[in-house]
């Protein structure tokens, strides 16, 4: 059974500090099992300027079991699958601790973006490129950030803001926008 009281509290705590950390956690649906986390790309990295979305699914045993996290934004990173967005991070697996929170886990993911560990790769191709041709890796990662992390997320944020200003709840707007593939008009039809 998920400790929803704790999840609720985590969301409140996270929204308090959203401006400072840039990390947001928003419920994808009403049941608090599926959430969307967003982290800004760390400054001084190829991911700078991008906003990366992470799908979060809370297991039954949360917080005694780690949350399942996966990049929904495409990222070029040795420890993140370029195909599925799966994250290779110890605290999301065996090194999870109930004392960690969604926010601290997302902070760790953000730190992983700044400090790739190609020796323990999730994506072997990216890891090889990182080790053998670092400049190409940087260029590719920057290109992916420009292509996927900026436009899509910026576009979505703008659409979300528009729809929220119309008077719809933000969570609902986000979930519907995602369900319709980011089409603003389709989302508005659904909302109405």
């Amino acid at each position: 059974m998920i400790d929803f009281a704790r999840v609720q509290k985590e969301l409140v705590e996270c929204s308090k500090d959203a401006e400072g950390s840039g990390i947001r956690v928003i419920p994808k649906s009403d049941n608090l099992v599926h959430l969307i986390g967003t982290i800004p790309g760390p400054i001084g990295t190829p991911y700078e300027g991008g906003v990366f979305q992470i799908d979060i699914t809370l297991p039954e045993g949360y917080p005694f079991e780690p949350p399942k996290m996966q990049f929904s934004t495409k990222v070029w990173h040795p420890n993140i699958s370029s195909q599925s967005g799966a994250i290779c991070l110890d605290i999301l697996k065996d090194q999870w601790s109930p004392a960690l929170t969604l926010k601290t886990a997302l902070l760790s993911v953000q730190a992983l973006l700044s400090a790739p560990q190609p020796d323990d790769p999730q994506d072997a191709v990216v890891a090889q490129q990182y080790l053998k041709d670092y400049q190409t890796f940087v260029n590719t990662a920057r290109y992916w950030t420009e292509s996927f992390a900026k436009t899509s997320s910026r576009g979505i944020e703008v659409k979300v803001q528009k729809l929220v200003e119309m008077g719809f709840p933000e969570a609902q707007v986000r979930s519907i926008l995602e369900a319709v593939g980011g089409d603003e008009n389709l989302a508005l039809e659904r909302l109405l």
């Binding site: 704790r6 509290k9 985590e10 917080p63 005694f64 004392a99 929170t101 926010k103």
Partner: peptide, 19 residues
């Protein structure tokens, strides 16, 4: 549920940091 190290030897939290 704050950031950083939520526990410290110098104080006792009023809430359980887990639940």
């Amino acid at each position: 549920c704050g950031g950083g190290i939520p526990w410290s030897r110098n104080s006792v939290p009023s809430n359980c940091p887990i639940c």
